[in-house]
Amino acid sequence: NMTTNERRVIVPADPTLWTQEHVRQWLEWAIKEYSLMEIDTSFFQNMDGKELCKMNKEDFLRATTLYNTEVLLSHLSYLRES
């Protein structure tokens, strides 16, 4: 059983600085953390943090459901504000 610390993704605090690998790690973490289903992860495959942060609700909806979109966008905006 993993502790919270072991599951925590170590990525730069500012999502606009993320590499493609960071985006992948964040997505994998969010899927596990929030038990998200039905995400087309290939949609995010060649995307870095700058591109991710430019995405709006409609962009996310092409890859996943409305619920997942709201979870991911709210977590992303939380990270950008902190």
Score class of each variant (00 low, 15 high):
N68A: 06
D59H: 07
I10V: 13
M2E: 04
S42I: 10
E6W: 12
M47E: 00
I10E: 15
T41E: 10
V9T: 13
W29S: 15
W26S: 04
T41A: 11
Y67L: 08
K57A: 05
G49E: 01
W18F: 02
L36M: 10
V11G: 14
A13F: 10
Y34A: 05
E70Y: 05
L61S: 09
D59Q: 09
K50W: 06
K50N: 14
K32F: 04
Q25T: 11
P12K: 07
I39S: 01
T41Y: 14
K54E: 14
L36C: 01
I39F: 09
I10Q: 13
E38Y: 08
L17T: 12
T4G: 10
F60V: 03
S42H: 10
R7K: 05
D40K: 05
K50P: 13
V11L: 15
T65F: 00
V71Y: 05
S42P: 09
D14H: 01
H22Q: 13
N46L: 07
G49Y: 03
E70G: 07
I31E: 11
V23A: 02
T19F: 01
T41K: 13
D40W: 01
Q45H: 10
K54Q: 10
L66Q: 10
M37W: 08
F43L: 14
D40A: 03
M2S: 09
E58Q: 14
Y34E: 07
L66K: 11
E38M: 09
T4R: 07
S74P: 03
K57I: 07
E58L: 08
L76M: 06
P15E: 01
M2R: 14
K32M: 06
W18E: 03
V9A: 15
L66V: 13
H22S: 05
T41C: 13
L72C: 04
L73P: 01
K57D: 05
N56K: 15
V71N: 04
H75L: 03
I10G: 15
E33R: 10
D14C: 07
A13R: 13
W26V: 01
K54F: 02
L17I: 13
N68M: 00
F43T: 09
E70I: 02
E21D: 09
W26N: 02
T69I: 02
L72W: 00
K54P: 02
N46K: 13
N5I: 01
F43H: 07
Q25A: 10
K57C: 06
Y67F: 06
L27S: 03
L17E: 14
L61W: 11
Q25E: 04
P12G: 11
A30C: 10
I10A: 15
T4I: 13
A30L: 07
P12H: 09
W29V: 08
I39V: 13
L17A: 13
S35C: 07
E70D: 14
T16Q: 05
T41W: 10
E6D: 07
E70W: 00
T3H: 04
E58H: 05
V71R: 13
K32G: 06
L17R: 11
R8A: 07
W29F: 04
Y67C: 10
L52S: 00
R7M: 09
L73E: 04
E58M: 07
E51I: 05
Y34Q: 04
R8F: 07
V11I: 12
F44R: 00
T69H: 01
F60A: 01
V23W: 01
E33K: 11
T3N: 10
D48M: 03
E28A: 12
L61V: 08
E38T: 08
Q45S: 12
Q20R: 10
T16E: 07
G49L: 02
K54A: 09
K57E: 08
N1A: 10
N56Y: 02
R8C: 05
I31N: 02
M37N: 03
R8P: 11
Y67N: 12
T3S: 14
D48A: 08
T69F: 01
Q25K: 13
K54V: 08
W18P: 01
N56R: 06
N1K: 04
E51S: 11
N46A: 10
D14G: 04
F60R: 00
E58I: 04
L27C: 04
V9P: 13
E70C: 03
E21S: 09
N68R: 02
Q45W: 14
F44T: 03
E33L: 00
T3F: 15
R24L: 12
A63N: 15
S42T: 13
H22V: 07
W29R: 12
T64A: 03
E28H: 05
H75Y: 06
L52P: 02
T19Q: 08
R24N: 09
L27P: 00
S35N: 13
M55L: 13
T19G: 06
S74K: 15
V11C: 15
K54R: 10
V9S: 15
V11R: 15
I10N: 15
T16R: 08
I10W: 06
F60W: 08
C53F: 13
I39L: 12
A63W: 12
T4N: 14
T41G: 08
A63F: 08
L36A: 01
A63M: 13
V11E: 13
T16A: 14
L73A: 08
N1D: 05
K57S: 05
S42G: 10
V71M: 10
E21N: 09
M55W: 11
T64V: 02
E70S: 09
T65L: 02
S74T: 10
E33I: 03
C53S: 06
S42F: 06
L73W: 13
C53P: 00
R62Y: 03
L17V: 13
L73M: 10
D48K: 06
D14N: 10
T64L: 05
W18C: 02
M2D: 02
A30D: 02
N1W: 02
C53N: 06
C53I: 11
E38W: 04
W29E: 15
L52G: 00
T3A: 14
P12C: 07
S74Y: 15
E21G: 07
Q20V: 08
Q45Y: 12
A13S: 14
W26H: 00
E70T: 06
L61C: 04
M55I: 04
V9Y: 02
D48V: 13
F60C: 02
M47F: 05
N68T: 08
E51K: 12
S35K: 14
L76S: 02
Y34L: 06
G49R: 01
N68S: 10
